[in-house]
Design a binder for these strands. Structure first.
Lengths: 352, 352
DNA sequence: TGATTTCATGCACACGTTTGTCAACGGGAT
DNA sequence: ATCCCGTTGACAAACGTGTGCATGAAATCA
């Protein structure tokens, strides 16, 4: 009734939804009591029968806490932001899914945004998320030494990098051992008998692109000697198209190669298309290994031998890390590196 | 300084970020002036040079509007919620992506949540989104006549159904013409010469599952006569596994069939696996048509003939519809139905 | 029974905005 | 000089919660 009196006239047509004051009125108590009864952390201050009564009113009126008001008061939104380059890239959905699962089970709700690897867009997105008051950020788009990390740091928002690692010690990251993954792929090919192995890689300003290339390079040097030639082409992005054209150039310029290690499965699919396009055979004429083991890589032709990335686990660990940061627990600020293992299918075989 | 005085002691260590009051102080004006200067709709009330001065202070201090406070005041969060069954299902990411693109360009930010088709989880998610004060909801998980629609209606949250249609006149939906898509697939097979065609469908309590089956059924009746037998098996979900087992049963029980129309590509991939598993050939022994044309369906073996679903367009139209609803424009409350067209690849050929 | 502790609840302020209302000011017309 | 009007800027009241502190009642103890 307090509220009703205060409105200028009764003209205000009760547009607002039911508030804590309404249920207090129903229950015949002060709303602060309702607030406490509804807050698990303060519930112990209230008598059980009162809690019961209030709960009944809550249910009857269909009361829902106003998260904005609560957030304004507590400075916590129970909201986190997830930033990916492109949800349409099959590597991301499982990560986002895992994050949402983990965070959802403790009452968080997640924003997602795409950047298309555009720094402007990424900066704007971070700003918007911070403005929304997210309690934390999980970012899969940081470039190496990305200055955007500062924006998060400056705002004091707990941030963890996932998948791509900006390699900035101020924030933790969760990723796969990219270099070792590529090295493993190379070793597999070497074991099969290949001696001319090329790399179709991704952008070198990304940890994924760079580390994978480095792993490839190192494994080649180890296998073929320090002054052996390292054959590689880089796409401007991890896309099928870029894989197709990079592989095309490779095939034209180096006729002797018998195997390709692609920087990821998208590039690998592009390689496959370039290979087919030229009428040569995989794995007959040329072997191919991808990375990530995206969905359906077992159904393509030929079924793709690839390095499996535990994407769900990436998301899970990133989420757990973030939760700990938000809760103020001391956490390992370093690199959290997961293993990627070889999935042998049919796209890589002995050279003929 | 007002604020400083009011804090109990100066003990409060400036934990809060920079507020509108700080910039007002810097600019030497009242904060209401700052608010207006920053609000495009009210900016005309302020002199250009003042706007300039204020903007400078904003930039200098790195002020970011507190969305919670703003939302609390205006009852608008510029936030919308998107609900899907499973982001891991390749049909969803493009839809979500399109929604985020469209809404993002006008300053909205989107929540996403997964339900795994669990009504409890879905209800909880809707509650949580509403509690967060979303300005609108785009839901891809409604079942036929889903009572959860009422929850949204009751809360007065603009809601549009996408992909799956609850077929409730109170809310608009945008989807593909599922029945016609299946019919088109059947006609294609009939034209190729098939006479024994079966359906591997999805759950019949979903518009997608039911309409596709109906379209299949009707087309068969049209082609083979009203009292021809309609052969169909239904999976409990649109998954590869369900497709595999349903197709297995089909193959065991009906040896004469020469073609299968799957309810979607996931089921189709499952069918493919069941077919391969039995050592029969696709399309040699049995033709297969999927639906949706998910990513990589051109790279599987055999390249899948399928009905293309314009998923991006689905998301775009849903977003546009929602924007109009939020803006209070009168909109078409009915069904918005997009066409799905046949993509001919290699999994369907003449029967031998 | 009176003093003291414990417990449940009420009070009021603060969180950071937006916005209706109004005062102040300056210029132009009479 | 007076009056009026238009332009700017200031004020204060919400929006719905959380929470430290005060209060009152009941319970405990001497």
């Amino acid at each position: 009734m307090d509220r009703v009196k205060k409105t200028k006239i009764k003209a205000t047509p009760r547009m607002s939804r039911v508030t804590i004051i309404d249920v207090a009125e129903q229950a015949g108590v002060h709303w602060s009591t309702v607030s406490r009864a509804l807050n698990p952390a303060k519930r112990h201050l209230i008598s059980p029968e009162m809690i019961e009564r209030i709960s009944a009113c809550v249910k009857r009126l269909g009361y829902r806490q106003n998260a904005m008001a609560s957030a304004l008061r507590t400075q916590k939104t129970r909201t986190i932001g997830v930033i990916v380059s492109n949800l349409g890239d099959p590597i991301h959905p499982p990560i986002v899914r895992a994050i949402e699962d983990r965070l959802g089970e403790i009452g968080y709700v997640v924003f997602v945004g795409n950047t298309d690897n555009d720094s402007m867009r990424e900066a704007a997105l971070i700003d918007r998320f911070i403005s929304q008051g997210v309690d934390g950020l999980i970012v899969a788009t940081f470039k190496l030494k990305d200055p955007l990390v500062d924006k998060c740091l400056l705002a004091g928002v707990p941030t963890v990098a996932v998948f791509r690692d900006p390699e900035r010690p101020e924030i933790p990251s969760v990723r796969v051992d990219d270099a070792e993954a590529m090295a493993r792929a190379v070793r597999h090919l070497v074991e099969l008998g290949h001696r001319k192995i090329a790399h179709v890689g991704g952008p070198q300003n990304l940890s994924t692109g760079r580390n994978r290339y480095r792993g490839f390079r190192k494994a080649c040097k180890t296998a073929f000697g320090a002054d052996s030639e390292v054959i590689a082409k880089f796409g401007k992005a991890f896309t099928v198209d870029e894989g197709h054209s990079a592989c095309g150039e490779l095939l034209d310029q180096h006729r002797a190669i018998t195997a390709i290690v692609a920087g990821n499965d998208m590039l690998a699919i592009g390689c496959l298309s370039a290979i087919n396009h030229r009428g040569i055979k995989c794995p007959g004429d040329i072997s191919l290994i991808g990375m990530n083991d995206m969905l359906f890589m077992d159904a393509v032709y030929p079924p793709l031998t690839t390095m499996h990335t535990p994407s769900r686990e990436l998301g899970l660990q990133a989420a757990n890390l973030l939760i700990d940061m938000i809760d103020g627990k001391k956490i390992e600020k370093g690199r959290h590196i997961l293993a990627s293992n070889l999935i042998i299918r049919s796209s890589a075989s002995k050279p003929n």
